[in-house]
Design a protein around this nucleic acid. Structure first.
Lengths: 185, 185
DNA sequence: CCCTTAACTTGTCAGTGACAAGATTGCGCG
DNA sequence: CGCGCAATCTTGTCACTGACAAGTTAAGGG
């Protein structure tokens, strides 16, 4: 007989959600299935997330936080924009479930402060990497930032949706693609 | 009393789906709601699409066909890669519902031949635009193609998910971003 | 030791996707 | 002209889902 109190239901449900989404995509996960996986009654998770959207919002926030950490780490280590882009792509591939939920605002509670803050942090980390590029290469800095984000985000999305040939290594191809944007810095 | 046979249910349901997805996102559309909008019983649409996934697959195929047409048209008119990219973005913004479904393979019947063929056609149109670029600019042609697709797809996705500032004009900003990839050709 | 409150369960309701079986209609073919 | 067949649509049903309401259990501060 399992104990009445799970102990760390919130974390367990989030982990189960990652598994379920990785297997079947975010569209087909159900709160009830997650509850079953974790071994808890069908309304258990509701207490922690309020909503299905609440669950996915929490997942998205966690994802942005993880991304921000990863970006800041490679920024501290290399200072290279290309490697920052590779980190972005690596995150998207390795944390596919998080990544898919992060950019699906129709599944979120748009006003969630934790989500907004985490998103902000990740955006700043990415923008900081573009700052490091010389002025002559980037032209307008804001446009350069949008271009940088676009190319790595697009690559990650296309890779994850199976639109790029799978015989390449994602990171290696991403490195060559990112290098095409701003010379090879 | 409406007639027993609708006449063009397939087209009507697809159109209703576009409206519904534009309003509420692809996650919350229900076959039953579409049936209601069109004025037909809840199982009517099933006959034409078999599945919910079948409906979305048909929508995606229609989207790829429209995109291929648009790309081929501007390719015939300008031959400029930048304008091809702008066309890609314009399509994504103007046909948001189609675009969202097109790149969500977890909602499709992956083996649908019509979808594969339409996707093929759009891919070829895009690749053709990159061919036109001089060899010295592109380096490896395959990598250049991936980079081109990535940057316009990423921009379109970020714009549609509300991650880019809305005070810009999408097409104008997209033009500047695309121009950053291969000089300004 | 109590009692407040967080954590979880049980029960229920409307809405959904899928399927089966029946009703209606248009159309080809004799 | 009319008969029958197949496509189109309807009605009925089932298991599953998200949301909510109300009850149960346990933990921890006073």
């Amino acid at each position: 007989m399992p104990p009445y109190h799970h102990g760390d239901l919130r974390r367990a449900v989030l982990a189960a959600a990652v598994d379920a989404i990785t297997e079947h995509g975010p569209a087909q996960v159900s709160l009830r299935d997650l509850a079953r996986r974790v071994g808890v009654s069908h309304a258990g998770p509701v207490h922690h997330f309020k909503d299905k959207a609440g669950l996915l919002t929490a997942l998205a926030a966690e994802g942005f936080a993880l991304l921000a950490d990863a970006l800041n780490e490679t920024r501290a280590q290399t200072g290279s924009f290309v490697e920052l882009g590779v980190t972005y792509v690596r995150f998207a591939v390795r944390h596919r479930a998080h990544f898919e939920v992060m950019f699906r605002p129709d599944l979120h509670h748009a006003d969630d402060p934790a989500l907004a803050e985490a998103r902000e942090r990740a955006g700043a980390a990415l923008a900081g990497g573009v700052e490091a590029l010389g002025e002559q290469k980037t032209g307008d800095r804001r446009t350069a930032g949008v271009a940088a984000w676009s190319i790595v985000h697009g690559f990650a999305t296309l890779w994850n949706t199976g639109n790029l040939a799978r015989d390449d290594d994602a990171e290696e191809l991403a490195r060559r693609v990112a290098a095409m944007l701003f010379g090879d810095d």
